[in-house]
Amino acid sequence: MPLPHLALLLLSLLAPLSATANGSIYGYVGDDGIERFSNVPDDPRYRLLLRDRLAPATAGLRFPRGVFALPFEQRPFHQEIHAASRSSGVDAALLHAVISVESGYRERVVSPKGATGLMQLMPATARRYGLNRADDPAGNIRAGAHYLRDLLAMFDNNVELALAAYNAGENAVLRHGRRIPPYGETQRYVPLVLAHYDRIKARPRPR
Rank of each mutant, 00 (worst) to 15 (best):
R75C: 09
P76F: 01
Q79A: 15
Q79H: 12
I81V: 14
A83R: 08
A84V: 09
S87D: 13
S88R: 07
G89H: 06
V90I: 12
D91M: 10
D91Y: 08
A92M: 10
A93D: 11
A93W: 00
L95A: 01
A97C: 14
V98Y: 05
E102W: 10
S103D: 07
G104Q: 10
G104T: 04
Y105H: 13
Y105T: 07
V109A: 14
V110F: 03
A115R: 02
T116I: 13
G117V: 10
Q120H: 13
M122D: 10
M122H: 03
T125L: 07
A126K: 06
R128I: 08
Y129S: 00
Y129L: 05
G130A: 10
L131R: 06
D135G: 08
D136H: 11
A138S: 12
G139S: 09
R142M: 00
A143Q: 10
G144R: 03
A145H: 02
A145V: 01
A145S: 11
A145C: 08
H146M: 14
H146N: 12
H146P: 02
L148E: 01
L148N: 04
R149P: 13
D150A: 01
D150Y: 02
L152H: 01
A153C: 11
F155H: 06
F155V: 03
D156F: 00
N157F: 12
N157I: 08
V159Y: 03
E160R: 15
A162D: 02
A162E: 00
L163W: 08
L163F: 04
A164K: 03
Y166I: 01
Y166R: 06
Y166F: 11
N167Q: 13
G169D: 11
N171M: 15
R178M: 11
R178C: 05
P181R: 14
Y183H: 14
E185M: 06
T186M: 04
Q187G: 08
R188C: 05
R188T: 01
Y189L: 09
V190K: 02
V193E: 04
L194T: 03
D198H: 10
K201R: 15
P204K: 12
R205G: 15
R205T: 15
